[in-house]
Amino acid sequence: MTDRTSFGGLPVTTALRTAFDLGRQAPRIDALVAVDALLHRRVVNLPALRRYATAHPGWPGLPLLREVLTLAEPLSESPMETRLRLPLLDAGLGPVAAQHDVLDPRGRFVGRVDLAWPALRLAVEYDGDHHRERAHFRRDVARLNALRAAGWLVLRFTADDVLRHPAHTVAAVAAALRERQATAVARPH
């Protein structure tokens, strides 16, 4: 198998080789963002990338790629979702479900949340600037009210939270997890 192909008449690496190369480049968060994005867009798939890595032992950066492949999430819809998820995992707050569909008690769709601990009905959302647009904001308010009515606690974070205050973000999620766990234990079944 060749690692090269052509795009617009120019020689380029194949999607698989590109994912392999990007996943081996530090820093770890950038490698994971790149791999998540390629997986989400279905440019490559995780089993094929794992096989490719196994077939290239001893290549520089392979230990990093192996770690990235254990953290990769094809459902991650944006680089910022990945950047939000990784510190939570690093803090031991996983496993966390990505792009979780929330249903009401009757089984009707309420909304999809970026990250979730379904058993605790805790959701974490990344809100980019587009959430400030009037129509988007109105939909968000209705959706958040519906999630609350379904018993969910939703924590919302911005780029500033994720990029400048990751320790605070992790602490807020950890506190919410502890609170929800205590409530779940205290709640009679």
Rank of each mutant, 00 (worst) to 15 (best):
T2P: 15
D3H: 08
S6M: 12
F7A: 14
F7M: 15
L10G: 02
L10A: 15
V12P: 00
T13N: 10
T13R: 13
T14P: 02
R17H: 12
D21P: 01
D21F: 00
L22Q: 02
R24C: 08
R24K: 07
P27D: 00
D30E: 15
V33D: 05
A34C: 10
D36Q: 13
D36F: 03
A37L: 10
L39R: 03
L39G: 09
R41I: 00
R42H: 13
V44K: 05
N45M: 11
N45G: 12
L46T: 12
A48P: 11
L49Q: 10
T54Q: 15
T54N: 09
W59P: 00
P63G: 08
L64E: 06
T70V: 04
L71D: 09
L71W: 14
E73K: 11
E73Q: 11
P74R: 09
L75F: 04
L84C: 07
L86S: 06
P87T: 07
L89P: 06
D90R: 06
A91K: 06
G94C: 03
V96Q: 04
A97S: 10
H100F: 11
D104T: 12
D114L: 10
L115G: 06
P118Y: 00
A119Q: 13
R121D: 00
A123N: 06
V124M: 07
V124E: 03
G128R: 12
G128N: 06
G128P: 08
D129W: 01
R134M: 05
A135K: 10
H136R: 15
R139I: 01
D140Q: 09
D140G: 05
D140F: 05
D140I: 07
V141T: 11
A146F: 11
A146G: 13
A149M: 10
A150Q: 12
A150P: 06
W152Q: 14
W152G: 11
V154F: 08
L155S: 12
R156F: 01
T158M: 07
T158R: 09
D160A: 09
R164Q: 07
H165A: 09
H165V: 03
H165S: 04
P166V: 04
A167F: 01
A171Y: 01
A172G: 01
V173P: 00
A175C: 03
A176K: 09
R178L: 08
R180T: 04
T183V: 08
A184G: 04
R187I: 01
P188N: 00
P188A: 00
H189C: 15
